[in-house]
Structure formats: structure tokens, C-alpha cells
């Protein structure tokens, strides 16, 4: 089967407000990162792919099936929303069994599958705990488990690492990489580190538009020659932030070492070109696409 998601010229409106502008994307097997600021339209795009939102125009096919055949799409996708919960009084395994039943799984297979999947997401010990008693990280892992329970070909996860501690976040990323071996996984996030660690292919969204699409290394290459470091006196920092995009800073005594993204060499006495990291490359991409990000913004 054609394991690919093809999005062509998709537009979407909320009332009169346009939320997606002429989106074109091709997503193949493996991890795909959708990077963008809050409110960039990532969730809208994800929900449209999961057949939970209507598009105004354009076409989307998921593994060969057009999005209009919602039943088919739902059978082959697993979706983890950004903001979700489950009936708090249900036990962990009961919640999974319930959602598995809604996915049309047979009772006999389900029991076994729940055990497997709980093991996979490291929740075996919590299987008899009520959902309300789970920690934030456990809930997220349960979220992935429910999205995987029916072994979908496509997994859509929306901002899954928000609110997780660093350890949980790493564990979560590893889990996603594992499941992406034999299926399409779309991960949306505003945290660059999530994408850096997991995705080969990425797209950057802003204000409902795709600004850029390619591999992580291509994005980094684009930024070569535009990322500088400099030592600046602390008192000049406010002024500096106004003029340049500052992607990192380390303060030592009176001086601050800053990392700056700039089209041309910055007018600073000791600025030197440096190797861009993904964060700086992402900021450069936003900046070169004309998105207002100077100042104190991300």
C-alpha cells in the first residue's frame, strides 16, 4: 500500500477567518515534525488530516484514501490531541479497552493487545490505577497507548511533550521513534529540541502557511553564515535584543555571551560566525520568511 500522506492546496476557514493557506505537503513513512509557534495552525492541520475538521478546498489523501472517506481514515489513524483526558473513574486498562472497542477491536484480541501496549509505554504497573491518579507524563504515555491500540498506519500526535519534565520528554521521544519504524508519525510541536532529536523530515508553519519543508540538515545548512556569537556587556542587552534575534545567552559576571541570528555581520566588536544549531536555523527560517520575531519573542 501507498504509505504516504499527500496534502494538496488545502485551505481552511473558521467562519470568515482563514486558518490554513494553500497547504502542500507530502509526508512519508517515519517521523515527520511540524514545527511552529503557538497559533501557527499546526493543530488545525493535524485535525484536518485526522478527519476531525473540514477543509474548504484542496485534497488530502492518507495512504491512498481521500479524507472525505472519514470512516476509512479513522480506521487507519491514531490521534493524540494536545489537550485530552479520559473518564477519570476508569482504570487505565479499562480506558484502553473501551477505546479499543470503539476502534472495532474484538474482545479476545483486545485483552492481549492492552497488555502489550501497556508494556510498551511502560505503564504495566499502573494498569489497575484510575486515570485520575496518573501523573502528567503517565497520562501522555497512556495517550500514545490509546492512539496505538488499534495498530494504525498513521499516528498523529499534537504537542505531546508540553508540560513534561526532561526525563519524561526523552522517554517520550524514544517511544515515538520506536513506533515510527513501520508507520507514519506526525509530531507537532513548538519545541525545537523535540524535532531535533527525533525527526528527519520537518515542515515549519506560521500563520496558517507552510514556510519551509525539508530535512533537518537542510534547514541547518540554510542558516550557515547567519549565526554569530558575541560577548556583550550586560547593560547593552536590552538594546541588543531589540536589534537582533537572540537565540541563546550565557551570563558571566559583567559580560553575556550571546548567540545571534542575522542576515549580515552584526555591528558588534567581537562577533564571530558560528555553526548553527537547529534552534538558530529555525529562527533564521522564520526571520527570513518575514515573520516578526525580533525583540523578546522566541
Amino acid at each position: 500500500m501507498n504509505k504516504m500522506i499527500e496534502i494538496k492546496n488545502v485551505n481552511k476557514f473558521y467562519g470568515r477567518k482563514q486558518a490554513l493557506y494553500d497547504i502542500n505537503l507530502t509526508i512519508e513513512k517515519g517521523m515527520f515534525g511540524l514545527l511552529g509557534r503557538n497559533g501557527a495552525g499546526k493543530t488545525t492541520l493535524m485535525k484536518t488530516i485526522a478527519a476531525l475538521h473540514q477543509k474548504k478546498s484542496g485534497s488530502i489523501t492518507v495512504c491512498g484514501a481521500p479524507i472525505e472517506r472519514a470512516g476509512e481514515i479513522r480506521a487507519m489513524t491514531g490521534y493524540l490531541p494536545q489537550d485530552f483526558s479520559m473518564y477519570p473513574s476508569m482504570k487505565t486498562d479499562e480506558a484502553l479497552e473501551y477505546l479499543g472497542a470503539l476502534s472495532g477491536m474484538k474482545a479476545a484480541d483486545l485483552r492481549e493487545r492492552v497488555t502489550d501496549i501497556l508494556h510498551k509505554v511502560n505503564l504495566t504497573e499502573q494498569r489497575s490505577k484510575k486515570v485520575a491518579q496518573l501523573s502528567g507524563g503517565m497520562k501522555r504515555r497512556l495517550g500514545i497507548a490509546q492512539a496505538l491500540i488499534h495498530d494504525p498506519q498513521v499516528l498523529i500526535v499534537d504537542e505531546p511533550t508540553a508540560g513534561l519534565d526532561p526525563e519524561e520528554r526523552i522517554r517520550f521521544r524514544n517511544l515515538l521513534c520506536e513506533v515510527a519504524e513501520d508507520r507514519i508519525v506526525i509530531l507537532s510541536t513548538h519545541i525545537v529540541g523535540d524535532v531535533e532529536a527525533t525527526c528527519e523530515q520537518i515542515a515549519i508553519m506560521d500563520e496558517g502557511k507552510i514556510l519551509w519543508q525539508g530535512t533537518v540538515s537542510q534547514l541547518i545548512n540554510n542558516a550557515i553564515g547567519h549565526v554569530y556569537t558575541a560577548n556583550v556587556e550586560r547593560r547593552f542587552m536590552p538594546q541588543l535584543k531589540k536589534e537582533y534575534i537572540v537565540t541563546g545567552m550565557i551570563t558571566q559576571a559583567e559580560y553575556t555571551t550571546v548567540r545571534i541570528v542575522s542576515d549580515s555581520e552584526p555591528d558588534l566588536p567581537n562577533a564571530v560566525l558560528t555553526e548553527p544549531d537547529l534552534e538558530a536555523a529555525y529562527m533564521y527560517c522564520l526571520h527570513s520568511s518575514g515573520c516578526g520575531i525580533k525583540g523578546d519573542e522566541e
Binding site: 476531525l52 490521534y79 483526558s85 470503539l102 488499534h150
Partner: peptide, 22 residues
């Protein structure tokens, strides 16, 4: 309304089951 109240609705909406059957 429990689905919405417990923020479970999107998990259920995205399932394979037909609305008629559910």
C-alpha cells in the same frame, strides 16, 4: 456530556466506530 466534560470527545471522535453504532 461526559465525553466533553472529561475532554475525551476527540479521542472518541477519531475512532473507527460509526456514529450510528456508537
Amino acid at each position: 456530556t461526559a465525553d466533553k466534560r472529561t475532554k475525551m470527545n476527540e479521542l472518541i471522535y477519531s475512532r473507527r466506530i460509526s456514529s450510528f453504532r456508537l
